[in-house]
Protein backbone atom coordinates (compact mmCIF):
# COMPACT_ATOMS: atom_id res chain seq x y z
CA UNK A 1 0.00 0.00 0.00
CA UNK A 2 1.31 3.38 -0.95
CA UNK A 3 1.77 5.85 1.82
CA UNK A 4 3.82 8.94 2.35
CA UNK A 5 6.08 8.39 5.36
CA UNK A 6 5.62 10.75 8.27
CA UNK A 7 8.67 11.37 10.44
CA UNK A 8 8.50 12.44 14.01
CA UNK A 9 11.03 14.92 15.29
CA UNK A 10 10.47 15.99 18.85
CA UNK A 11 7.30 18.01 18.95
CA UNK A 12 7.07 18.17 15.18
CA UNK A 13 5.94 15.93 12.42
CA UNK A 14 7.87 15.99 9.20
CA UNK A 15 6.55 15.05 5.79
CA UNK A 16 8.52 15.16 2.60
CA UNK A 17 6.48 14.66 -0.50
CA UNK A 18 8.84 13.23 -3.08
CA UNK A 19 6.51 12.13 -5.84
CA UNK A 20 3.60 13.61 -7.67
CA UNK A 21 0.61 12.51 -5.70
CA UNK A 22 -2.45 10.94 -7.10
CA UNK A 23 -5.62 11.67 -5.20
CA UNK A 24 -5.82 8.59 -3.02
CA UNK A 25 -2.28 9.10 -1.80
CA UNK A 26 -3.08 12.68 -0.87
CA UNK A 27 -6.23 11.85 1.04
CA UNK A 28 -4.34 9.06 2.82
CA UNK A 29 -1.74 11.58 3.81
CA UNK A 30 -4.39 13.86 5.22
CA UNK A 31 -5.89 11.05 7.33
CA UNK A 32 -2.53 9.71 8.48
CA UNK A 33 -1.29 13.14 9.48
CA UNK A 34 -4.32 13.95 11.55
CA UNK A 35 -4.06 10.61 13.34
CA UNK A 36 -0.37 11.15 13.94
CA UNK A 37 -0.99 14.59 15.38
CA UNK A 38 -3.49 13.08 17.72
CA UNK A 39 -1.31 10.12 18.70
CA UNK A 40 1.89 12.01 19.26
CA UNK A 41 0.49 15.26 20.51
CA UNK A 42 2.64 17.05 18.01
CA UNK A 43 2.58 20.84 18.08
CA UNK A 44 3.76 21.45 14.58
CA UNK A 45 3.54 19.88 11.13
CA UNK A 46 6.08 20.63 8.45
CA UNK A 47 5.32 19.61 4.90
CA UNK A 48 8.08 19.86 2.33
CA UNK A 49 6.68 20.16 -1.18
CA UNK A 50 9.88 21.20 -2.92
CA UNK A 51 9.76 18.11 -5.13
CA UNK A 52 6.21 18.76 -6.23
CA UNK A 53 6.03 20.20 -9.71
CA UNK A 54 2.26 20.51 -9.63
CA UNK A 55 -0.15 21.66 -6.98
CA UNK A 56 -3.69 21.74 -8.33
CA UNK A 57 -6.84 22.77 -6.53
CA UNK A 58 -7.30 19.30 -5.10
CA UNK A 59 -3.81 19.16 -3.65
CA UNK A 60 -4.19 22.73 -2.47
CA UNK A 61 -7.37 21.81 -0.69
CA UNK A 62 -5.70 18.84 1.00
CA UNK A 63 -2.90 21.10 2.25
CA UNK A 64 -5.44 23.63 3.50
CA UNK A 65 -7.44 20.87 5.18
CA UNK A 66 -4.38 19.52 6.93
CA UNK A 67 -3.65 23.03 8.19
CA UNK A 68 -7.15 23.61 9.49
CA UNK A 69 -7.48 20.16 11.04
CA UNK A 70 -4.12 20.44 12.73
CA UNK A 71 -5.02 23.90 13.98
CA UNK A 72 -8.09 22.70 15.88
CA UNK A 73 -5.89 20.02 17.37
CA UNK A 74 -3.53 22.74 18.53
CA UNK A 75 -0.79 22.23 15.98
CA UNK A 76 0.56 24.69 13.43
CA UNK A 77 1.27 23.69 9.86
CA UNK A 78 4.04 25.04 7.67
CA UNK A 79 4.35 24.27 4.00
CA UNK A 80 7.91 24.75 2.82
CA UNK A 81 9.87 24.80 -0.42
CA UNK A 82 7.18 25.68 -2.91
CA UNK A 83 8.54 26.03 -6.44
CA UNK A 84 8.19 29.51 -7.98
CA UNK A 85 6.24 28.13 -10.92
CA UNK A 86 3.86 26.42 -8.53
CA UNK A 87 3.33 29.62 -6.54
CA UNK A 88 2.56 31.60 -9.71
CA UNK A 89 0.16 28.91 -10.88
CA UNK A 90 -1.66 28.80 -7.56
CA UNK A 91 -2.15 32.55 -7.59
CA UNK A 92 -3.47 32.40 -11.14
CA UNK A 93 -5.73 29.55 -10.17
CA UNK A 94 -7.11 31.73 -7.40
CA UNK A 95 -6.07 29.44 -4.61
CA UNK A 96 -4.76 30.78 -1.35
CA UNK A 97 -3.47 28.25 1.08
CA UNK A 98 -5.62 29.24 3.97
CA UNK A 99 -4.81 27.78 7.31
CA UNK A 100 -1.20 27.01 6.59
CA UNK A 101 1.94 29.07 6.98
CA UNK A 102 4.62 29.02 4.37
CA UNK A 103 8.39 29.20 4.52
CA UNK A 104 11.17 29.11 1.99
CA UNK A 105 12.90 25.96 3.15
CA UNK A 106 12.91 23.34 5.87
CA UNK A 107 15.28 25.33 8.04
CA UNK A 108 13.19 28.50 7.94
CA UNK A 109 10.05 26.44 8.39
CA UNK A 110 11.45 24.88 11.54
CA UNK A 111 12.40 28.30 12.87
CA UNK A 112 8.91 29.52 12.21
CA UNK A 113 7.32 26.55 13.97
CA UNK A 114 9.58 27.00 16.97
CA UNK A 115 8.54 30.61 17.22
CA UNK A 116 4.88 29.84 16.77
CA UNK A 117 4.69 27.28 19.53
CA UNK A 118 6.92 29.17 21.88
CA UNK A 119 4.14 31.66 21.83
CA UNK A 120 6.06 34.77 20.99
CA UNK A 121 4.10 37.96 20.66
CA UNK A 122 1.97 37.97 17.63
CA UNK A 123 3.29 41.30 16.49
CA UNK A 124 6.84 40.17 16.38
CA UNK A 125 5.91 37.02 14.70
CA UNK A 126 5.94 38.37 11.23
CA UNK A 127 9.55 37.47 10.76
CA UNK A 128 10.30 35.16 7.95
CA UNK A 129 6.70 34.32 7.89
CA UNK A 130 3.74 34.70 5.78
CA UNK A 131 1.22 35.95 8.26
CA UNK A 132 -2.17 34.49 7.94
CA UNK A 133 -4.40 37.44 7.40
CA UNK A 134 -7.16 35.72 9.30
CA UNK A 135 -5.00 35.58 12.39
Amino acid sequence: MDRIPILRMGKFLLVTIQIDLYDRLATNLETDLVYMVNKTGARGVLIDISALSIVDSFMGRILGNIGSMARIMDAETVVVGMQPAVAITLVELGLELKGVHTALNVEKGMELLQKKINGLDDEEDEIAANEDSTD
Partner: peptide, 13 residues
Protein backbone atom coordinates in the same frame (compact mmCIF):
# COMPACT_ATOMS: atom_id res chain seq x y z
CA UNK B 1 -1.53 41.89 -5.76
CA UNK B 2 -0.86 38.64 -7.58
CA UNK B 3 2.86 39.07 -7.25
CA UNK B 4 2.51 39.70 -3.53
CA UNK B 5 0.28 36.64 -3.15
CA UNK B 6 2.77 34.43 -4.98
CA UNK B 7 5.64 35.74 -2.85
CA UNK B 8 3.68 34.91 0.27
CA UNK B 9 2.94 31.42 -0.95
CA UNK B 10 6.67 30.90 -1.24
CA UNK B 11 7.06 31.90 2.36
CA UNK B 12 8.43 35.40 1.93
CA UNK B 13 6.92 38.81 2.64
Amino acid sequence: IKTVAATRLMGAE
